[in-house]
Design a binder for these strands. Structure first.
Lengths: 210, 210
DNA sequence: TGATAAAGTGAATATTAATTCATATTATCT
DNA sequence: AGATAATATGAATTAATATTCACTTTATCA
């Protein structure tokens, strides 16, 4: 043999993958998943169409990757908010406070993220990627579920099925945000976002409190 | 001139339109909007592809029509439940009771409607039709909003933005039902539907109550 | 430098589904 | 029956993308 992959080639491979990943994320953030075509990605990344297929099995894989990458940071941030790490147990706020804060952060980030958040939460995409969205929403539900359960155990919240409550919270958040998100995504700045988030917060709080 | 539309031809026209409408609704109820193509509709209705275009402007129009027809009865039923007609004011149940009942009926019908309900509430479809779903959900939100507002005015519910609460309720319902709906739609009968609906009901009630 | 393997290319092809349109059929009226 | 108009037909066309693949370029190593 007379060819072996080396550190340099591996580095380039990683760089190319990152280039495609970044570009794809940009395209989605700018125009939603509709704007992400193999051709548009190739053009914007300045590579040939065929190159895409050296790095991703097919179009679906690109979408899935973008979805995961786009949502990972969101989920992480929200989780950190619900269950702050590096805080001594005695300094940990009560569940009610953390739930409020988590809802606020979720909403505000969604509203600030414009098109990307809309794409992740609500934009219609093809069924193969839809499975990813389900996971995305479930990841959130999982976080809320743990928080609600902790609240129930500590007597802060009424006894309830924390899975259902968590799913309902995610649904309530998504549904109330979709309208405003669509408007914000289209550039018509909207006032009253603070009030909106307050209303949602109050609604969810009341739903789970004792 | 030597041709004039007559009652007979008009009747046939209506019959044909109904045939296409029924067939399209059947296809969606059976396989979701994905299964509804111009070709599949033509085949199942036993007409030529071109015929579809004599009755509908384009594919979108077919989808929109199916969506409206499919949802009309649902919305009507739910509305009747929230605001029963032909009941003397003094016999009208309180808002809390009506809200509970409305949520129960909404959920149960969705769960019983299998694939159609899933298609209307959650199945990803193309953007043109998506606008219709937004209207569909808003129709529900409108009903809940009126009911919540009435409850607030009567002091049964806490003071709140009834639009936000209503939207949140619709979101909570849709989100909690999608999972079970998908499972029911695939034939894996699910137990615990009653409990699920009870949990959702309790959640929403707690959220709006004083 | 020549052999080997991987990465890159993009025109050609495949896919999927909507839409059109020249033609045929059917209904109506005198 | 003949004239007229609406309705029906479905093969052919269009459209929008995804996917392939024969070929070129680049990198590695003996």
């Amino acid at each position: 043999m007379a060819y072996r992959p080396t550190e340099k080639t591996e580095a380039r491979k990683r760089a190319q993958h990152k280039l495609l990943s970044d570009t794809a994320l940009n395209i989605v953030a700018r125009g939603g998943f509709n704007a992400l075509t193999v051709a548009s990605l190739a053009e914007e990344a300045k590579v040939a169409i065929g190159t895409i297929y050296k790095y991703f099995k097919d179009k679906s894989a690109v979408c899935t990757h973008v979805f995961q990458r786009g949502s990972a940071r969101e989920v992480e941030t929200v989780e950190q908010c619900a269950f702050p790490e590096g805080v001594r147990p005695e300094d940990m706020a009560d569940c009610r406070t953390r739930l409020e804060e988590t809802i606020r952060v979720f909403s505000m980030r969604a509203l600030a993220g414009h098109k990307l958040a809309y794409a992740l939460i609500a934009e219609p995409i093809d069924p193969m990627v839809e499975a990813e969205r389900l996971k995305y929403r479930q990841a959130y539900a999982e976080i809320f579920s743990r928080l609600v359960q902790e609240g129930v155990d500590k007597g802060e919240f009424r006894p309830q099925d924390s899975r259902v409550a968590a799913t309902a919270i995610v649904g309530a958040l998504a549904e109330t945000l979709v309208g405003p998100l669509a408007r914000v995504a289209e550039g018509q700045e909207d006032i009253g976002l603070e009030e909106l988030v307050d209303s949602i917060k109050t609604f969810c709080l009341a739903a789970v409190l004792a």
